[in-house]
Simulated assay, not measured.
Amino acid sequence: MSHLTQLKTFVEVYRCKNITKAAANLGMSQPAVTAHIQTMESVVGKALFERQARGVKPTPTAHDLALQVSSHIDILEQKITSIRARSEAVFGTLNIAGPAEYISFVSGPQIANLLQAGNINVVLHIGNKINIFDALLNDTADIAIAASTPDPAIFDYLVLDKEQLWLVMNRLEGREIQDRKITAELLSTYNVVTYDQDLPLVRQYFDRVFNASCNSNVIAICPDIRAIAHIIRSGIGYSVLPDYLCRDLIKAGELIQLGSVGPENNIYLVWKKGALKHPRIAFAKDVISAFANINYLSN
Protein backbone atom coordinates (compact mmCIF):
# COMPACT_ATOMS: atom_id res chain seq x y z
CA MET A 1 0.00 0.00 0.00
CA SER A 2 1.25 3.52 -0.82
CA HIS A 3 1.59 5.98 2.04
CA LEU A 4 2.79 9.03 0.08
CA THR A 5 -0.04 11.24 1.34
CA GLN A 6 0.60 10.23 4.94
CA LEU A 7 4.35 10.76 4.51
CA LYS A 8 3.72 14.24 3.15
CA THR A 9 1.58 14.99 6.20
CA PHE A 10 4.26 13.56 8.50
CA VAL A 11 6.97 15.78 6.96
CA GLU A 12 4.81 18.90 7.37
CA VAL A 13 4.05 18.09 11.03
CA TYR A 14 7.74 17.32 11.63
CA ARG A 15 8.74 20.72 10.23
CA CYS A 16 6.00 22.71 11.96
CA LYS A 17 6.11 20.75 15.23
CA ASN A 18 2.45 21.65 15.51
CA ILE A 19 -0.52 19.66 14.19
CA THR A 20 -2.85 22.66 13.96
CA LYS A 21 -0.34 24.68 11.90
CA ALA A 22 0.47 21.70 9.68
CA ALA A 23 -3.23 21.15 9.02
CA ALA A 24 -3.61 24.78 7.95
CA ASN A 25 -0.59 24.55 5.61
CA LEU A 26 -1.91 21.37 4.03
CA GLY A 27 -5.52 22.58 3.76
CA MET A 28 -6.67 19.64 5.90
CA SER A 29 -8.65 19.29 9.09
CA GLN A 30 -6.79 18.65 12.33
CA PRO A 31 -8.43 15.22 12.85
CA ALA A 32 -7.36 14.18 9.32
CA VAL A 33 -3.74 15.14 10.05
CA THR A 34 -3.86 13.24 13.33
CA ALA A 35 -5.22 10.18 11.50
CA HIS A 36 -2.36 10.33 8.98
CA ILE A 37 0.22 10.45 11.78
CA GLN A 38 -1.42 7.51 13.50
CA THR A 39 -1.31 5.56 10.23
CA MET A 40 2.43 6.21 9.88
CA GLU A 41 3.04 5.23 13.49
CA SER A 42 1.25 1.99 12.78
CA VAL A 43 3.43 1.42 9.70
CA VAL A 44 6.78 2.06 11.45
CA GLY A 45 5.65 0.40 14.69
CA LYS A 46 6.82 3.26 16.92
CA ALA A 47 5.61 6.64 18.13
CA LEU A 48 6.66 9.56 15.97
CA PHE A 49 5.69 12.51 18.17
CA GLU A 50 5.23 13.29 21.83
CA ARG A 51 2.39 15.70 22.57
CA GLN A 52 3.36 18.80 24.50
CA ALA A 53 1.47 21.78 25.86
CA ARG A 54 2.26 23.67 22.70
CA GLY A 55 2.71 21.43 19.70
CA VAL A 56 4.49 18.11 19.38
CA LYS A 57 8.06 16.91 19.87
CA PRO A 58 9.59 14.52 17.29
CA THR A 59 10.91 11.23 18.63
CA PRO A 60 14.24 9.73 17.50
CA THR A 61 12.23 7.54 15.09
CA ALA A 62 10.67 10.68 13.59
CA HIS A 63 14.10 12.25 13.14
CA ASP A 64 15.33 9.14 11.34
CA LEU A 65 12.25 8.89 9.11
CA ALA A 66 12.35 12.60 8.22
CA LEU A 67 16.02 12.36 7.28
CA GLN A 68 15.27 9.53 4.87
CA VAL A 69 12.07 10.79 3.22
CA SER A 70 11.75 14.59 3.45
CA SER A 71 14.00 15.46 0.49
CA HIS A 72 12.26 12.86 -1.68
CA ILE A 73 8.84 14.24 -0.76
CA ASP A 74 10.05 17.74 -1.69
CA ILE A 75 11.31 16.54 -5.10
CA LEU A 76 8.03 14.78 -5.83
CA GLU A 77 6.09 17.89 -4.86
CA GLN A 78 8.23 20.05 -7.12
CA LYS A 79 7.78 17.71 -10.07
CA ILE A 80 4.03 17.48 -9.55
CA THR A 81 3.76 21.26 -9.28
CA SER A 82 5.84 21.70 -12.42
CA ILE A 83 3.79 19.21 -14.42
CA ARG A 84 0.53 20.74 -13.20
CA ALA A 85 1.68 24.25 -14.07
CA ARG A 86 2.87 23.20 -17.50
CA SER A 87 -0.22 21.24 -18.40
CA GLU A 88 -2.42 24.20 -17.41
CA ALA A 89 -0.30 27.17 -18.47
CA VAL A 90 1.93 26.10 -21.37
CA PHE A 91 -0.10 27.04 -24.41
CA GLY A 92 -0.25 29.77 -26.99
CA THR A 93 2.50 31.36 -29.06
CA LEU A 94 6.19 31.38 -28.15
CA ASN A 95 8.35 33.98 -29.88
CA ILE A 96 12.00 32.97 -30.35
CA ALA A 97 14.68 35.31 -31.72
CA GLY A 98 17.93 34.05 -33.17
CA PRO A 99 20.59 34.26 -35.89
CA ALA A 100 19.49 32.95 -39.27
CA GLU A 101 22.47 30.66 -39.78
CA TYR A 102 22.27 28.79 -36.44
CA ILE A 103 18.47 28.55 -36.67
CA SER A 104 18.75 27.23 -40.24
CA PHE A 105 21.54 24.70 -39.77
CA VAL A 106 21.39 23.56 -36.14
CA SER A 107 18.19 24.48 -34.27
CA GLY A 108 15.79 22.13 -36.04
CA PRO A 109 15.81 19.43 -33.32
CA GLN A 110 15.56 22.07 -30.58
CA ILE A 111 12.51 23.68 -32.16
CA ALA A 112 10.92 20.35 -33.08
CA ASN A 113 11.36 19.06 -29.54
CA LEU A 114 9.70 22.19 -28.21
CA LEU A 115 6.73 21.85 -30.56
CA GLN A 116 6.23 18.20 -29.68
CA ALA A 117 6.51 18.71 -25.93
CA GLY A 118 3.87 21.38 -25.32
CA ASN A 119 0.59 22.79 -26.57
CA ILE A 120 2.27 25.77 -28.21
CA ASN A 121 3.18 27.19 -31.59
CA VAL A 122 6.39 29.04 -32.42
CA VAL A 123 7.17 32.26 -34.26
CA LEU A 124 10.84 32.75 -35.18
CA HIS A 125 12.36 36.23 -35.36
CA ILE A 126 15.57 36.24 -37.39
CA GLY A 127 18.13 39.00 -36.98
CA ASN A 128 21.62 40.12 -36.06
CA LYS A 129 22.81 40.49 -32.47
CA ILE A 130 21.31 43.98 -32.10
CA ASN A 131 17.93 42.82 -33.41
CA ILE A 132 17.98 39.74 -31.19
CA PHE A 133 18.63 41.55 -27.91
CA ASP A 134 16.25 44.38 -28.85
CA ALA A 135 13.53 41.79 -29.47
CA LEU A 136 13.98 40.53 -25.91
CA LEU A 137 14.04 44.03 -24.44
CA ASN A 138 10.85 45.17 -26.16
CA ASP A 139 9.10 41.81 -25.54
CA THR A 140 8.83 40.94 -29.21
CA ALA A 141 10.67 37.75 -28.28
CA ASP A 142 10.14 35.60 -25.18
CA ILE A 143 13.48 33.83 -25.40
CA ALA A 144 16.44 34.02 -27.78
CA ILE A 145 19.45 32.20 -29.18
CA ALA A 146 22.48 34.47 -29.51
CA ALA A 147 26.08 34.13 -30.64
CA SER A 148 27.17 37.22 -28.69
CA THR A 149 27.63 37.40 -24.92
CA PRO A 150 24.47 38.86 -23.30
CA ASP A 151 24.60 41.75 -20.84
CA PRO A 152 24.36 40.04 -17.40
CA ALA A 153 22.79 43.16 -15.88
CA ILE A 154 19.75 42.76 -18.15
CA PHE A 155 19.60 39.11 -19.16
CA ASP A 156 19.94 35.65 -17.69
CA TYR A 157 21.40 32.99 -19.95
CA LEU A 158 23.12 29.65 -20.30
CA VAL A 159 25.59 28.24 -22.82
CA LEU A 160 23.51 26.29 -25.32
CA ASP A 161 26.18 25.24 -27.81
CA LYS A 162 29.58 26.10 -29.27
CA GLU A 163 30.71 26.95 -32.77
CA GLN A 164 34.26 26.77 -34.10
CA LEU A 165 35.60 29.24 -36.66
CA TRP A 166 37.15 27.79 -39.81
CA LEU A 167 39.14 29.57 -42.50
CA VAL A 168 37.76 28.53 -45.90
CA MET A 169 38.58 29.44 -49.51
CA ASN A 170 37.12 28.67 -52.90
CA ARG A 171 38.41 25.39 -54.27
CA LEU A 172 40.33 26.85 -57.24
CA GLU A 173 42.56 29.15 -55.21
CA GLY A 174 42.42 26.98 -52.08
CA ARG A 175 43.96 23.97 -53.80
CA GLU A 176 46.89 26.12 -54.93
CA ILE A 177 47.89 27.05 -51.38
CA GLN A 178 46.48 24.34 -49.13
CA ASP A 179 49.90 22.67 -48.74
CA ARG A 180 51.66 25.93 -47.94
CA LYS A 181 52.01 27.54 -44.53
CA ILE A 182 48.99 29.78 -44.18
CA THR A 183 49.87 33.22 -42.83
CA ALA A 184 48.24 36.64 -42.64
CA GLU A 185 50.74 37.87 -45.23
CA LEU A 186 49.83 35.12 -47.68
CA LEU A 187 46.10 35.73 -47.27
CA SER A 188 46.57 39.47 -47.84
CA THR A 189 47.13 38.66 -51.52
CA TYR A 190 43.62 37.18 -51.83
CA ASN A 191 40.15 38.74 -51.68
CA VAL A 192 37.97 38.30 -48.60
CA VAL A 193 34.18 38.15 -48.32
CA THR A 194 32.84 39.33 -44.98
CA TYR A 195 29.71 40.01 -42.94
CA ASP A 196 30.32 43.75 -42.52
CA GLN A 197 33.14 46.28 -42.74
CA ASP A 198 34.36 45.41 -39.23
CA LEU A 199 35.22 41.88 -40.46
CA PRO A 200 33.81 40.29 -37.26
CA LEU A 201 34.61 36.57 -37.70
CA VAL A 202 37.62 37.21 -39.93
CA ARG A 203 39.08 39.65 -37.42
CA GLN A 204 38.54 37.22 -34.54
CA TYR A 205 40.30 34.43 -36.42
CA PHE A 206 43.27 36.61 -37.44
CA ASP A 207 43.67 37.92 -33.87
CA ARG A 208 43.69 34.44 -32.35
CA VAL A 209 45.56 32.41 -34.98
CA PHE A 210 47.94 34.93 -36.55
CA ASN A 211 48.08 37.66 -33.91
CA ALA A 212 47.73 40.04 -36.84
CA SER A 213 45.20 42.15 -38.71
CA CYS A 214 43.52 41.14 -41.95
CA ASN A 215 44.80 43.29 -44.82
CA SER A 216 43.00 41.51 -47.65
CA ASN A 217 40.91 43.38 -50.16
CA VAL A 218 37.24 43.22 -49.11
CA ILE A 219 35.61 42.20 -52.37
CA ALA A 220 32.09 41.71 -51.01
CA ILE A 221 30.08 42.48 -47.87
CA CYS A 222 27.06 40.33 -47.12
CA PRO A 223 25.09 40.42 -43.83
CA ASP A 224 24.06 36.78 -44.21
CA ILE A 225 26.74 34.21 -43.38
CA ARG A 226 24.89 31.53 -45.34
CA ALA A 227 25.22 33.60 -48.50
CA ILE A 228 28.93 34.21 -47.84
CA ALA A 229 29.56 30.46 -48.01
CA HIS A 230 27.88 30.24 -51.41
CA ILE A 231 29.66 33.30 -52.80
CA ILE A 232 33.03 31.73 -51.94
CA ARG A 233 31.87 28.36 -53.22
CA SER A 234 31.26 30.02 -56.59
CA GLY A 235 34.94 30.90 -56.89
CA ILE A 236 35.35 34.18 -55.02
CA GLY A 237 37.99 34.70 -52.32
CA TYR A 238 37.95 33.36 -48.77
CA SER A 239 36.28 33.99 -45.41
CA VAL A 240 35.98 32.69 -41.85
CA LEU A 241 32.76 30.82 -41.09
CA PRO A 242 31.18 28.77 -38.29
CA ASP A 243 31.96 25.07 -38.64
CA TYR A 244 28.33 23.94 -38.98
CA LEU A 245 27.83 26.19 -41.99
CA CYS A 246 30.74 24.92 -44.09
CA ARG A 247 31.32 21.37 -42.79
CA ASP A 248 29.34 19.64 -45.54
CA LEU A 249 30.75 21.89 -48.28
CA ILE A 250 34.29 21.00 -47.20
CA LYS A 251 33.49 17.28 -47.21
CA ALA A 252 32.07 17.65 -50.71
CA GLY A 253 35.23 19.44 -51.88
CA GLU A 254 33.33 22.61 -52.70
CA LEU A 255 35.25 24.65 -50.13
CA ILE A 256 38.85 24.21 -48.99
CA GLN A 257 39.66 24.50 -45.30
CA LEU A 258 42.97 26.23 -44.68
CA GLY A 259 45.24 26.86 -41.71
CA SER A 260 44.67 26.08 -38.09
CA VAL A 261 41.27 25.55 -36.55
CA GLY A 262 40.08 28.88 -35.16
CA PRO A 263 38.65 29.90 -31.79
CA GLU A 264 35.41 28.63 -30.32
CA ASN A 265 32.41 30.89 -29.76
CA ASN A 266 29.63 30.20 -27.30
CA ILE A 267 26.02 30.08 -28.45
CA TYR A 268 23.71 31.30 -25.69
CA LEU A 269 20.10 30.72 -24.74
CA VAL A 270 18.93 34.08 -23.36
CA TRP A 271 15.90 35.51 -21.56
CA LYS A 272 15.12 38.72 -19.71
CA LYS A 273 15.66 38.70 -15.96
CA GLY A 274 12.48 37.56 -14.23
CA ALA A 275 11.03 36.06 -17.41
CA LEU A 276 11.10 32.49 -16.07
CA LYS A 277 8.15 33.32 -13.81
CA HIS A 278 6.09 32.84 -16.97
CA PRO A 279 5.51 29.06 -17.30
CA ARG A 280 5.70 29.11 -21.11
CA ILE A 281 9.16 30.71 -21.08
CA ALA A 282 10.44 28.44 -18.30
CA PHE A 283 9.11 25.48 -20.26
CA ALA A 284 10.87 26.65 -23.44
CA LYS A 285 14.15 27.15 -21.59
CA ASP A 286 14.04 23.62 -20.15
CA VAL A 287 13.07 21.92 -23.41
CA ILE A 288 15.50 23.79 -25.68
CA SER A 289 18.41 23.37 -23.27
CA ALA A 290 17.75 19.61 -23.17
CA PHE A 291 19.05 19.65 -26.76
CA ALA A 292 22.23 21.57 -25.91
CA ASN A 293 25.55 21.10 -27.74
CA ILE A 294 24.07 19.73 -30.96
CA ASN A 295 26.80 21.34 -33.03
CA TYR A 296 29.62 20.91 -30.52
CA LEU A 297 29.04 17.16 -30.24
CA SER A 298 28.95 16.75 -34.02
CA ASN A 299 32.63 17.71 -34.38
Rank of each mutant, 00 (worst) to 15 (best):
I221V: 15
C214K: 09
T183R: 13
V44P: 10
R86P: 00
F283C: 02
I154T: 15
N131M: 12
Q38C: 10
Y205S: 01
V270H: 00
D151R: 06
E173S: 15
T93D: 05
V193T: 14
A97T: 00
N121Y: 11
N121F: 14
V192C: 11
L114S: 04
Q38L: 12
D198K: 07
L48E: 08
P200Q: 02
S148E: 15
S29N: 06
F105A: 15
C214F: 03
A35M: 05
S87Y: 02
I83G: 02
I126E: 14
L199D: 04
S239D: 15
F206D: 10
R280K: 09
P223T: 15
I75Q: 07
P242L: 05
Y14D: 04
V209K: 11
V218W: 10
S148M: 07
K21G: 06
K251Y: 12
S234P: 13
S298V: 00
L187H: 09
N170W: 00
V159N: 00
P263W: 02
S70G: 02
Y102V: 02
L172K: 12
E254W: 05
A66I: 06
V13T: 01
Q178A: 13
Y296V: 05
G92D: 00
N95Y: 12
A284I: 04
S42K: 15
G118H: 06
S289Y: 05
A135T: 03
V56G: 04
P109A: 13
G253I: 01
L115A: 06
E50R: 15
